[in-house]
Design a protein around this nucleic acid. Structure first.
Lengths: 213, 213
DNA sequence: CTATTGTTTTGAACACTGTTCATAATAATA
DNA sequence: TATTATTATGAACAGTGTTCAAAACAATAG
């Protein structure tokens, strides 16, 4: 059977990804399957494998789309607040990331739960590196004397920490959040705490020695 | 068939868990299956389901065992260095956690990748709460005036951040670690950076207002 | 010591999974 | 219109977790 006239290959790819993202809005990824995706878009499982190579690569394409959405939101948030001070921008940056994670928890989780056997493709690596650059750009105005290695060190540390906080907040089941009483410690306040204390010390510290080794 | 005389139910449970942990020493959890476990311990799949309830609960029992191992290592590390200052102890604490994650990456990952549909059992929650208490105990000597809410806030923030750093270090594929050149930013240095800057600011900050809300 | 009761283990069966591939159906070209 | 490419399909395959009637053993009663 040749191409059904309703979709070109690229249209079908986009339509598949959109369908999966819609599913992940309500259900976790482990409840999805290649055959369910095929049913949703009314194509056969084999067709989707021809398109993406495998189910794993289909999910990878979904993750790429998610990363694009995240990147778009972060850029919009930042460009809409360029008059603010750098530490305020970094706070908005992290808060926007957390907001996306909480609005689309299953999409967000899939990015980190789904690993391929082979290495991550470079086009995906580039998407992630772009996010780091946005952080380093604010860090360098926060402390202009810092070296490139120090900027990388700080941006990675901050981002890994923010990411960990988001994980804790998205599934408040792993760690104990509401164990006893009082005010629940939400991700928002943890991000505030992290950036406030880390940055206030980092921007003042002199670079007497290289961070690692 | 009644009980084969080689193992009692509890012995079999322990033997199964040990076998899975051995597997996870070399291979990721997604390459394991109930049937493979059954083959390894030379029992039938149905027997293991009778024992644990389901394959998901079997993996949960494995995670409980892993958490015990982590807890044991952390307690040993801390009790062997009670003469040190609290921030030094927190550093050792985080470093030991990272060390375990890097020595047993597949065991460590399984704890957070494997989620049940229903809530986390309280006996697992208790294990995690114990780890938090160890942190809060050091934080309170670091800043005796801090309230219970502040301690919880700080311990959660620190631990979530440390956890995020470990994730980044265990699979250096997700984020870009060795993207360009120079000294690679390892988890050890990130943990040092995090604790140094966060704690140096936190222990000085006065509690003028409650952390959240 | 045999017969009965109770418990533990099993393997076949079920509904599912991702993947392969010969075949069939359509589109583009000669 | 006939031929060549391309594209979609569904059956088949090996794998998955789970169920459950039947079988095999242990413990007890007569």
């Amino acid at each position: 059977m040749a191409r059904r006239k309703d979709h070109t290959p690229d249209e079908l790819k986009a339509w598949v990804i959109r369908s999966v993202l819609e599913f992940l809005q309500d259900f976790p990824a482990n409840e999805l399957s290649l055959r369910k995706v095929a049913k949703r878009v009314e194509y056969s499982p084999g067709t989707l494998i021809n398109l993406f190579g495998s189910y794993a690569h289909l999910l990878l394409a979904v993750n790429a789309s998610t990363l694009d959405h995240i990147s778009e939101r972060l850029n919009n948030r930042l460009s809409a607040s360029q008059e603010l001070e750098p530490q305020q921008q970094l706070l908005l940056f992290a808060q926007e990331y957390l907001a996306f994670a909480k609005e689309h928890p299953f999409q967000w989780r899939l990015i980190f739960e789904h690993r391929l056997d082979d290495d991550v493709p470079e086009w995906q690596q580039n998407r992630i590196n772009q996010l780091f650059e946005l952080i380093e750009l604010r860090l360098i105005t926060l402390r202009p004397t810092s070296t490139s290695a120090e900027l990388q060190q700080a941006s990675r540390t901050i981002w890994a920490s923010v990411h960990g906080i988001c994980m804790l907040d998205v599934d408040n089941k792993i760690f104990a959040t509401d164990n006893s009483s009082e005010l629940s410690i939400n991700g928002e306040s943890m991000i505030q705490s992290l950036l406030k204390h880390y940055l206030s010390s980092w921007k003042l510290s002199s670079n007497t020695h290289t961070p690692s080794q």
